[in-house]
Design a binder for these strands. Structure first.
Lengths: 178, 178
DNA sequence: GCCGAATAATAAAACCTTTGATTAAATCTG
DNA sequence: CAGATTTAATCAAAGGTTTTATTATTCGGC
């Protein structure tokens, strides 16, 4: 049980440490390093996405998921919904729902695919193209501000470690979206 | 414009590289290292959270956000809604809505705070306590599988780099939830 | 060529999140 | 101490996600 009396009020910064030491007392068999890694990774990504979405995307009338779809269509060119889902890491149902909004806003257009009448071909409208380019420029400046707190070398090592973690996902047979 | 013809079908793994080289052609002034860092960070975290939620939390009747609230209450003890929001990194409105579900499911209870009649004190019910402990054990085993693809040293360095990135958020005046 | 199985997209229901009111209680200020 | 301001929580509207079920097509084996 090990109820820890907090000597000083816990804040967001110290909560990870607190949670880990509390867990050490309550569940001695827990893997604390793994716990710290996942907590920290989630916390950083969360803060980063919130900052980007609220300072870059929403002021321009886009959501973060909407930005991701435009981003994929910008780089991959016109593509089927299924492919956009794969490349963006969203489910097909999520893409379908999201494209309703993007189509209504005139940023993306739907068209029946030529070779398969079940499939839908998505493409950027001219307005969508302008939107993604303008938004990406602001997005990238913000990314630069975040990334700039690390040295070149640190950025490179961080990316390498993250890629290794991502490759490990296959080894542990992580569940992925259908 | 630099329309890149794809020599072979793009997949999720190669999309980051493709997006970066396409951006290099389309927007020469872009910071590609920052772009790669953010794309990779988001991609890994997304995959990790999806795997944890779909393999650990949903089968036990919890959502990922629900798990986070129980996790905070488990470690911090009974606390006001405002505090749970701060410690979990959610907005107060999100906590309020989420607790409706958790309360309905009998995992969390609401009570008016003693010192301030505006405030609500949240605490785990006995069922909530059982739920968080059982779920956390499975959650931690899954974390261990993911983290296990890195060496001890790599895990340590990854956490350090993530913490440095998180500290940088203050320097760049990142927006945070109210 | 035809019929059962697989596949693409969408719909439906349940949940969660965000921003911007609204309500009620506490606190500050003159 | 009264009035204005701030603060805690919740509500409301709009959007996004998930899983499961449906519909329309295409594919595969005989």
């Amino acid at each position: 049980m090990a109820a820890e009396p907090e000597p000083r009020p816990l804040d967001f910064l110290s909560f990870v440490d607190h949670a880990i030491s509390h867990t050490a007392g309550a569940l001695p068999q827990a893997d604390l390093d793994a716990m710290r890694l996942v907590l920290t990774l989630h916390r950083v990504t969360n803060a980063l996405v919130y900052d980007l979405e609220s300072s870059v995307h929403r002021p321009r009338g886009l959501s973060w998921p909407g930005f991701r779809v435009l981003f994929v269509l910008w780089h991959a060119g016109p593509a089927e919904a299924k492919r956009v889902a794969e490349l963006s890491g969203m489910s097909r149902a999520a893409v379908s729902a999201l494209v309703n909004t993007l189509e209504r806003d005139g940023l993306v257009s739907r068209r029946q695919a030529d070779h398969d009448r079940r499939a839908v071909r998505l493409s950027l409208t001219p307005a969508g193209n302008d939107a993604i380019i303008g938004t990406f420029e602001a997005h990238n400046r913000r990314e630069q501000a975040w990334a700039g707190t690390l040295t070149d070398d640190e950025r490179g090592r961080l990316v390498e470690l993250l890629e290794k973690l991502m490759e490990g996902a296959d080894l542990v047979a992580a569940k992925r979206r259908v």
